[in-house]
């Protein structure tokens, strides 16, 4: 095992998180304490924290599933399309037969575009959570 601060290994002899002790609220440092407390809530899996992260997981999973569906239909549907309409495979575009143009060239920018949408949207989902935590 290698020592490292940010690992998730379970042999780490940390006890199960205890409920946080009551804190004295200092009005002058109120905002700071709030942020701090929200973080600790997430970390210690109080109900609020769990709900927050559950929401994020659901958002990220549904994003991934939606984009997978796009790929499954538009890319994964191609063999079926060519099986059902063999004449499509004979169509030539710019001197290239359609299957060669689609699979040999256009598939790559398309996959990149889907990936780009995912990165943007996944980061936005995370930003939404961070903003929410900051504003509580």
């Amino acid at each position: 095992m290698l020592p490292d601060a940010d690992r998730l290994v379970t042999e780490d002899p940390q006890p199960q998180p205890q409920p946080s002790p009551r804190v004295r609220i200092d009005l002058a440092a109120r905002r700071h304490v709030r942020v701090d407390r929200t973080l600790r809530e997430i970390e210690e899996q109080t109900r609020v924290g769990e709900v927050l992260i559950q929401g994020l997981i659901r958002a990220q999973l549904s994003l991934a599933l939606r984009l997978s569906a796009v790929i499954a239909v538009l890319v994964g549907g191609l063999p079926l399309l060519f099986a059902l309409a063999p004449s499509l495979a004979e169509v030539a575009v710019f001197g290239l037969r359609l299957p060669w143009l689609l699979l040999g060239v256009l598939a790559y920018p398309f996959l990149f575009a889907v990936a780009w949408v995912h990165v943007r949207q996944a980061e936005r989902n995370e930003q939404d959570l961070s903003d929410f935590v900051d504003s509580t």
Binding site: A5, D6, L8, T10, D12, Q14, Q16, P17, L39, I42, E43, Q45, G49, E50, I53, L56, I57, Q60, E126, Q127, L129, S130, V133
Partner: peptide, 25 residues
């Protein structure tokens, strides 16, 4: 199912900007 599954899920999915990954050891 691991008893600390909640904590594991947080670690897997929470963005680093929340600071939950920087645990003092």
């Amino acid at each position: 199912v691991p008893v600390d599954i909640g904590r594991i899920m947080v670690a897997l999915h929470a963005p680093e900007s929340l600071g939950v990954h920087r645990r003092p050891t």
